[in-house]
Design a protein around this nucleic acid. Sequence first.
DNA 1: CTGAAAGCGCTAACAC
DNA 2: GTGTTAGCGCTTTCAG
Lengths: 332, 332
Amino acid sequence: MKDVAAEAGVSVMTVSRVVNGDAGVAPPTAARVEAAVRKLGYQRDDVARQLRRTDQLSQTIGLMVDNVADPFMAAVASAAEDVARQRGSMVLIGSSRADVRREQEVIETFTARRVDGLILIPAAGSHRFLRSAQAQGTKIVCVDRAAPGLDADAVVVDNFGAVKEAVHHLIAHGHRRIAYVGDKPEIWTFGERHRGYRAALEAEGIDADPAIVRHGLRSGPDAAQAVTELLSSPEPPTAVLAGNEVLAFGVLAVLPPDIAFLSFDDFALAPRLTPPVTVIAQDPVALATSAAHLLFARIHGDTSPPRTVVMPTELIPRGSGEIPGPHAPHGR
Amino acid sequence: MKDVAAEAGVSVMTVSRVVNGDAGVAPPTAARVEAAVRKLGYQRDDVARQLRRTDQLSQTIGLMVDNVADPFMAAVASAAEDVARQRGSMVLIGSSRADVRREQEVIETFTARRVDGLILIPAAGSHRFLRSAQAQGTKIVCVDRAAPGLDADAVVVDNFGAVKEAVHHLIAHGHRRIAYVGDKPEIWTFGERHRGYRAALEAEGIDADPAIVRHGLRSGPDAAQAVTELLSSPEPPTAVLAGNEVLAFGVLAVLPPDIAFLSFDDFALAPRLTPPVTVIAQDPVALATSAAHLLFARIHGDTSPPRTVVMPTELIPRGSGEIPGPHAPHGR
DNA sequence: CTGAAAGCGCTAACAC
DNA sequence: GTGTTAGCGCTTTCAG
C-alpha cells in the first residue's frame, strides 16, 4: 500500500479510500491510484483490514458438520455457502467426524480467527464449551440437530413425529417386527428418531424388541452388516427402518426384496430401485438456507430470544414401505 | 492480552510466550498466566498473529469446487479438509457453479485473506487471472481437471483412455449407436471424455452422429430430458454413456432397462439397480488426498517443476454395459 | 478533497 | 527468565 501511494504520489490514506471505493476522492487522483494498483498488482490485505476495522466483523462464518461427504451435509454446506456469498461472507469448513472433542478443537480455531458466526450440526456430547464463544460474541445456529444445554437457534425437522408416522405406516401394512437401524441415540436427531420408533410401537401395543434395534451405525457397511445379522437371527424382522441416507444405502446393499423398507432422507435413485423405496423426505437445502438467514440476522443485530424453526417432512410411499407384512389385513 | 498481563502481573510478552507454549518461562509464572487466561476467558487472536508473524503463513487454504453438493466434489472436499487438518490448516470453501467469473471473484476473496494455497476444480474458461495469485506466492493445485494455460500441479485421471475403453466395451457388446451425455466440453474433464468417445468410434470405423451427443448438461433433470428426447428420435441409441454421477442419476430416472448404459463414477447403489450399472470408477478421496499433499509440499518449499499426477480408473462391468446390442456376436 | 498520527493485537529482536 | 521497543498493513480520527 505504501508502494502504491508512492507510485501515485499520494498518501496511503488516499489509496485506502480508492481501494475501498470511498466517496470524496477527486476522479483524477483516483485514476492515478488505480493505475498504480494495476501496475504493482496490489491487492488489499483483508487480514490487516479486519484487525483495524471498528465493526470488528470478519465477514467469515464457520460451518461445522459431521462429514462433508455425507450427501445430506453436502447439501447443507452448499446451501449455507450460497447464502454466505450473497451476504458477502466466506465460509470456513470443518468436519467433526462425530467426535465432540474434534468439533471443539476445530471450533476453537474458528473463533481464534474471529468468525462472525457458526452454523453447526452438533455431534453427540456436551456443547457447554460453546458458551465462551457466545460470550465472545460469536453467533451460533444449529441445523438438523439441537444442541441440548445450548442457548442457540436451531433449524430442524420433527424427527419424532415423522418416524412415528412412518412406523405406524409399516404397522398398518401388517408389520410387527420392525428393525431400527440408526446412529448413536446421543446424537439429538437419532435420539428423536428412535423415540418416534418406540412411541409408535407402544401406541400400537407392540413390545419393542431390543434385539432388532441397532444403534451407533456410522457408515453403509456398518448398516449392511447389522442388517445381515438381523436377518439371520432366529426371529428376523419383516421390515427395516433406516435412520438416514447413508445407512439406507448400506441396508439396500443386502436387503432381500421381500422385506419392507423405509428410510429417512430421500435420494435420487429411490424410485428406480426394485421395489422403489418409500422414504421420509426432508429438504436439507431449505434447512440450511433458513439457518444461514437466521445466522446473518443475528450477526446483524437480531437479539430476540433463540428460536427453534421446525421444517416439514413428507412420507413418500413408493413401494418398499407398502410390502405387506404377516399381519396385513388381507393375509400375506 | 493486556488484561491478561495485568491480571497475572507480567508483560504481554510473557503472556504471548505462555499462550504459544514457548520455552523459557518459569513454571510459576506460566501458571499465573494460565490462571489469568482462564479467568478472563482469553483466546489468542490469530488474525493479529498472522499479521505479525514472519513466516507469513495464514495456515489457511482455499478449496474451490463447482458445487459442494455434487457427490464427487463433496468427497474431494472431505478428503482435502482431512489433510488440511492434519497439517494444521483451515479450509475456506467456495463454489463456482461452473462460472469462471464467479470462480475468480471467490478466489480473489481467498487471496485477499492471504491463503497459503488453493485446491481447485477449475471451471471452463481462462485461468490466466490466477497468475497474479501465483506471483503473490499462492500455491495452486488442480484436481479432477487441468486448467489449460496455467502452470500448476494437477491430479487427474486418464479420462480420455477410460472413456475410450468403455466405448470399445459397448461396441464389443454389439452397439453402434451410442449416445454421449455430458457437460460442456470446454470443461477439461468433459472435453477429454468426449474425445475418448470419438476416438473409440473412429477406431472402430463408426461414424459419429452428432444427433446423439448432448453437451452442456448440468443436472440430473437436464440429463433425463436429453435422454428422453434421444429415445423418442427416429433413430434412437441402443446404448447411453453418462459423463458423471449426477448425470447418471438423471439418465437412470428415465432409461428403459433394455438400453445399455455405462457411467463415469461409481456410486453406492449401482449394484442394486436393475440391471446393475456398469461404471468407470475413480477414487475422489485418493485424488484429493494426493492433491492436498502436493499443495502442502509446495507451501513448505517444494519448488520442483509442476507435475501432473494421473490416478487410475477401473471399468467395473455389472450388467447394464453388457446388454447386447443389435450387432452382438450371437445375435440380439 | 487530502494527509498525519495513532493504534488494532500480536510477535521479532533485542535488551536486561 | 522477563521486559521494552518497534512495527506487521490497514483504518480511524482529526487537522488542514
